[in-house]
């Protein structure tokens, strides 16, 4: 029973994060200029880097979404997801505490950075951290790696 719950939890985390990355990647791909303007609004990066980041970062989000669903090298994907979300939360926090009036650019291009958006991004970190630190049983000798890779028994995901 416990195993089943953990399995559901594991999949929920993956699906929620994947859906989120698909959505956030999609809106940024659709509006590269708005995204570039949003990044510029953080006042953290040189202008020369911004169009490059605006062009490629959304595709990285989509790729992370696909990898989260596929489950290949899950531990690395979970680590990358955590890193991306931590990066965003840090940027938002820095911008907010510097007192810069900027847009968040996370789920839309209208909401301004506030303690609420920082809190929201921090909450999104929870499923990523769960996937990163969930307990995984070591593979037993002779056990097929492909037997069941969808849950906490996802040994094949751990490289």
């Amino acid at each position: 029973m416990k195993k089943r719950i953990l399995q559901i939890l594991h999949w929920m985390c993956r699906i929620i994060l994947a859906a989120m990355f698909f959505y956030t990647g999609y809106i940024k791909i659709e509006s590269p200029l708005q995204f570039a303007v949003t990044i510029a609004g953080y006042d953290l990066f040189p202008d020369a880097l911004i169009p490059f980041a605006a062009q490629w970062f959304p595709w990285a989000e989509i790729a992370l979404g696909v990898l989260l669903l596929v489950g290949w090298k899950m531990r690395y994907v979970a680590a990358a997801t955590t890193a991306v979300l931590l990066f965003f939360t840090t940027i938002l926090s820095i911008t907010y505490f510097r007192g810069i009036d900027a847009n968040c650019g996370c789920f839309d291009f209208d909401s301004k950075i506030s303690l609420l958006t920082i809190l929201r991004d921090s909450i999104i970190l929870i499923p990523a951290l769960y996937l990163l630190f969930e307990r995984r049983k070591p593979a037993k000798p002779g056990e097929s790696k492909n037997a069941d890779n969808s849950s906490v028994n996802a040994e094949s995901d751990v490289s």
Binding site: P32, L33, A36, D47, A48, I50, P51
Partner: peptide
Amino acid sequence: GKEEKLDRRPPSFQIMKQF
């Protein structure tokens, strides 16, 4: 075929140029 609306801080000319 796309239309982007920019109603907050406008982009710098450098960003606009690269775009």
